[in-house]
Amino acid sequence: MTLPVPTLTPAFDVEVALGPLEDHLGTSAGHRRVVPILGGRVSGEVDAEVLPGGADWQLVRPDGTIEIDSRYSARTASGDLLLLHARGLRTGPHEVLARLGRGEDVDPTLYSFRTTVTVETSAPALAHLQRSLFLASAQRLASAVHYRAYRVG
């Protein structure tokens, strides 16, 4: 049996503005950090404003790899709401991760920052987004994250 090879088709870009990192240090789950999402923009197959109030709940592994778990809402110009959920990993050489930790802008080809993205919505016109899995390639900037989401086909 031959299984289909997944394809990637560009779907949308997301830029989120980030608030100051909240370092919860060692919790029962591990080294927990929370990064507030202050706003931003979704553009492409769907255009929407990222609403303040979301966050990225991170776990920092002993090797410096960060487990990403971010959730935030966005609203289209017509008032439709979306809930985006991105889960993945940011990892790379220790010195590159240290630069990112200091808030430096680092060439995204020097580290790996990948997430899966799912979308929830009650808007019939956007329901197709809920029937797709998206894989994103991301870049961490000093006070923002930018990613491009690709539909997995």
Rank of each mutant, 00 (worst) to 15 (best):
L3S: 13
P4H: 14
P4C: 14
V5L: 15
T7I: 12
A11D: 01
D13Q: 11
V14R: 00
A17Y: 02
L18W: 00
G19C: 09
P20E: 15
L21E: 11
E22F: 03
D23P: 01
D23W: 04
T27Q: 14
T27D: 11
H31Y: 10
R32T: 10
R33Y: 00
V35H: 01
R41N: 09
E45K: 08
V46M: 07
A48F: 01
V50E: 00
L51K: 02
A55I: 03
W57M: 06
V60R: 10
R61H: 14
P62Y: 04
S78Q: 15
L81G: 08
H85N: 12
R90M: 05
P93A: 15
P93C: 09
L97K: 03
L97Q: 05
G101Y: 08
E104W: 04
D105G: 08
V106T: 05
S112Y: 10
F113K: 03
T115S: 10
T115Y: 04
T116P: 01
T116D: 05
T121N: 07
A127Q: 14
H128Y: 15
Q130I: 03
A138Y: 01
A138Q: 05
A138T: 02
A138C: 11
R140D: 02
L141F: 09
A142Y: 09
S143E: 15
H146N: 07
V152E: 07
G153P: 10
G153M: 12
